[in-house]
Design a protein around this nucleic acid. Structure first.
Lengths: 162, 162
DNA sequence: CAAGATACCGGGGAATCCACGGCATAGCGC
DNA sequence: GCGCTATGCCGTGGATTCCCCGGTATCTTG
């Protein structure tokens, strides 16, 4: 293992292959015991613990989350809504995000549509009600999701040098 | 607490307010100890364990994941790419998903653009390289992400009756 | 070469997880 | 009403895991 100095708190961290192996495993199973994790990455439990703590302290791992099946809890409809947002009063939208938990994700982007939202609804009527409220902000474009060809996965390797 | 019969293995589960409280907590912190979780939802540790196991067995909780900060591991650029996909040979795209881990998510949707992808890149040159490869399948529309106004969050309440 | 820093290992006490049996209540059949 | 069963909750250990400690090897620095 080459010696690589670590400088914490920086924008981008210096991660060696073992760190990446740890990240891959904890992204796959966030509740894996540290002894098992150590076995997977060929390290003792205590060394694995130190690396994991460092990754958490540096903010590389920002937290652990349980993954909930939307359909199983009653959200049968998933949709992507793009919102063309005239003007620059963005506070009302933030208010809406705090009230409407059906909005699962909201990305501000370049291009004609200022925001791209991922929303979940229990029925088409529910989705219509939600889009109605969004349309008060600007024009919307809604696409229903057939299936998640690739459910969200985190980064698995460092980005290539380009 | 009202008595509610439970039927596992169905498309949608019957969840009472305590189940939802558990879901909210484990989505916020997937590594919370069961004793602490029980305290939050006013239940003993063993009762909490049984409910959690049931939710896992029923597939309501599909797994636990560590959340990795993309910028901290070198992915400075996040983008939404919409892909207009002529024809119906979808296998090559699946191959690409297995090879290109920069594609974090892929949704098949209704509308003019068949697929909506979320991709991460280390630089604009890297993103260009990636979009070039996607353009071989069909025409693409790329929007860079300024910021995640609302990072992904799971469902917090049952859907309203509409 | 000595001093400091980094990364790893191993050990032992504390906390957690897990499986068991017991208790209370709701629904069901008689 | 009266048993019987099923469900949900609790409490108790025994096994596992976590967490903090000191010790060692290697590399950097002066």
């Amino acid at each position: 293992m080459p010696w690589i100095p670590r400088y914490l708190g920086r924008m981008t961290e210096t991660l060696d292959p073992t760190d990446w192996a740890i990240l891959v495993e904890v992204q796959r199973d966030g509740r894996i015991p540290l002894t098992e994790l150590g076995r997977r990455v060929n390290l003792s439990a205590s060394a694995t613990t130190e690396r994991l703590k460092r990754l958490e302290a540096a903010g590389v791992i920002s937290g652990y989350r349980a993954d909930v099946d939307l359909a199983k809890v009653g959200y049968a409809v998933l949709a992507v809504v793009r919102l063309k947002y005239p003007g620059n009063k963005h506070d009302p939208l933030k208010k809406l995000l705090q009230r409407r938990f059906e909005i699962l994700e909201c990305l501000r982007t370049t291009g004609d549509d200022c925001y791209t939202l991922k929303v979940a609804a229990g029925s088409m009527a529910h989705l219509e009600d939600l889009v109605n409220e969004l349309t008060e902000f600007g024009s919307t474009t809604t696409n229903l999701v057939y299936s998640q060809t690739q459910p969200y996965r985190g980064p698995q390797t460092p980005p290539p040098e380009l």
